[in-house]
Design a binder for these strands. Structure first.
Length: 557
RNA sequence: UGGGGCAUGGUGCAAUGGCAGCACACCAGCCUUUGGAGCUGUGGAUCUUGGUUCGAAUCCAGGUGCCCCAGCCA
């Protein structure tokens, strides 16, 4: 397939191409407009990649502009976190700016509108403003302060700026139409008074702060942004976006809206994510069960996989909820090609090979990655006593069960064929030890007589294995849409979303580099966690392998 | 009962008046020293009613459903 055919196309890219063709714009410049009041999550990635890629595909530029118009909610800590996450995704920007960089110019532009009789200071209380806005079906009422003179408005605005009035006592409003069917056009607020806390960049210089509608489009214009791409809920704001720019007579970017990313089995709103963290339902913003980028990174997701996911989701205006299974498939797809294979037993069951010499240790050759021959091979020690997965043994096998059971022969991966001879049980009647006999002629896993086994299972040598903590993760919520229903999203938290196991890993996994990713054969992909110590390596389940047997077994029930 | 937007298999996205296709999921099979990976195949969709047209997912009209908007949040 040629790169041409591979290029994604969607209604935004078509609109941008059209604008270039018709000469509406001669270049492309987009902006990334995060508000520094939280950590980035998977939903942001879609918006980020649209902005970044559309600029890049058109030899254009991307400006990273922090939307810091509300000192009550924003912090510098988030600025650094957002940049770190964006860089991890591979996003590049030509310039880092802040809405607050433009406060002076924006104030001048506000004065311009006042002078043109298009903005006024309103002394109504917030309650009165709200009441007089009207409803969806009824028009609003004009403010009694709507027709003040330009001089008085200029004077009042200046004094608002200087901090002469308390919070909430006055606002600057655009003078448009209180009867407009679009409520955003009913004399929207432009500036509000906020004395505390100080702004994270401008300190206590300003006592008035612009609202989104007054700030965003003007900043876009000042920066020469050609395409201001945002989510669907801003569609109703576009008339206002254009009104300001038209009245000012300044450079006019084009706002285009698309559907934001939603995913099932998770929540994406900052408020809800904060509750999960603050109420201790998860262990912080980077808990691997969270949909934040730092959580996904810690869990072992690669940037490549996340970007592939975003690409596969596409861009449209349909409200949509993407299946998290697609994300997981993208992660597997990437890790399958790159992760080194290792053997680890996470729910150990002891196996004694009675006819294997007591003190013999053999080094078995094991392939590091069948998808990538250049990854080479390694030696794995084998001895008389090993651990296998509890799931890989049944005393009485169900139909279609191919693994170890009394009388059955299986292959130990890269080692020998073994046949189960008998078991040892505890007082409770549980199998605590399996005994088996091996066939010395099958070393490496091939039988010279052409004999077949139906199953290959993984193992670790008991005396050589390293004990490790393995954190198994499942979906955070049990319902596809956690927000649906009366009880709220916390009511469907999955009580089993984290299970901590103590397993055994092969010697090559004893001291993993934090963040390194492996496939534990037949189990899934795992990532070494930063909680690892030399005594206790810790692995996070990134994503499980597809498990045909588990599916079969589930269906049989 | 105002305004803005959106309707294509289970899910997400294509088809820009000319054979409704891709991915994920699902199902069946092949292959396999991972019940992994890979490969092959099956089933399943144009919200509805009418109209224009040789021909409609696409154009027109009506209907229905869903989403967004009444913050001095973004």
């Amino acid at each position: 397939m040629s790169p041409e055919e591979n290029k994604p196309t969607d209604f935004i890219r078509e609109a941008v191409a059209e604008d270039l063709r018709t000469g509406r714009y001669t270049y492309v410049r987009t902006r990334l407009p995060p508000e520094p009041n939280g950590y980035l999550h998977i939903g942001h990635v879609k918006a980020f990649m649209i902005d970044y890629l559309i600029a890049k595909e058109n030899n254009g530029e991307l400006i990273l502009r922090f939307d810091d118009t509300n000192p009550a909610k924003e912090e510098t800590e988030f600025v650094e976190a957002i940049k770190e996450d964006a860089r991890w995704l591979g996003i590049e920007w030509v310039k880092e700016t802040y809405a607050s960089d433009y406060f002076d110019l924006l104030y001048e532009w506000a004065r311009t509108l006042v002078k043109k009789g298009l903005a006024y200071v309103d002394d109504q209380t917030p309650e009165e403003v709200s009441k007089n806005r009207g409803t969806l079906t009824e028009p609003g009422k004009n403010s009694p302060f709507r027709d003040r003179s330009v001089e008085e408005n200029l004077n009042l605005l200046e004094r608002m700026k200087n901090g002469e009035f308390p919070d909430g006592s006055r606002i600057l409003r655009a003078k448009i139409d209180m009867a407009h069917p679009n409520i955003n056009m009913r004399d929207p607020a432009m500036y509000r008074i906020i004395h505390e806390p100080p702004h994270h960049r401008t300190g206590d210089k300003w006592k008035i702060y612009p609202l989104y509608d007054w700030s965003h489009g003007q900043n876009d214009s000042m920066e020469g942004i050609t395409h201001s791409l945002c989510s669907l809920e801003y569609e109703n704001h576009r008339p206002l976006y254009e009104w300001f720019l038209d009245q000012l007579g300044v450079f006019k970017p084009r706002q285009i809206e698309f559907a934001r990313l939603n995913m099932n089995y998770t929540v994406m709103s900052k408020r809800k994510l904060r509750r999960l963290v603050e109420e201790g339902h998860v262990n912080g913003w980077d808990d691997p069960r969270m949909p934040t980028l730092r959580a996904m990174r810690r869990r072992g997701y690669t940037a490549e996989a996340i970007l592939d996911f975003i690409r596969r989701v596409g861009v449209a205006k349909n409200y949509s909820v993407t299946d998290v299974a697609l994300l997981e498939e993208c992660v597997r797809d990437d890790l399958n090609k790159h992760a080194l294979r290792r053997m680890a037993v996470i729910r150990p069951l002891k196996v004694v090979i009675d006819n294997y010499p007591n003190d013999l240790v053999e080094e078995m050759d094991a392939v590091n990655n069948p998808e990538d021959p250049s990854a080479g091979t390694r030696k794995v020690p084998f001895s008389k006593v090993i651990y296998i997965e509890q799931d890989d043994f049944r005393e009485t096998p169900p139909p279609k069960y191919y693994r170890l059971y009394p009388g059955n022969e299986v292959r130990l991966r890269y080692a020998y064929f073994i046949k189960c001879t008998h078991v040892v049980k505890n007082d409770a009647g549980e199998v605590v030890e399996v005994h088996a006999a091996y066939d010395p002629s099958t070393k490496g896993g091939d039988s010279p007589d052409g004999r077949k086994v139906k199953s290959t299972i993984h193992w670790v040598s008991a005396t050589h294995a390293k004990q490790a903590e393995v954190r198994m993760y499942d979906r955070l919520f049990t319902k596809e849409d956690p927000e649906e229903g009366e009880e709220g999203f916390l009511a469907c938290l999955n009580p089993n979303s984290l299970e901590i196991l103590t397993g055994y890993v092969e010697p090559h996994l004893a001291a993993p580099e934090v963040g390194s990713r492996f496939q534990f054969e037949r189990l899934g992909y795992f990532c070494a966690d930063r909680d690892s110590t030399p005594e206790n390596p810790v692995f996070n389940l990134t994503v499980n392998l597809k498990d045909t047997w588990a599916k079969l077994e589930k269906k049989a029930k």
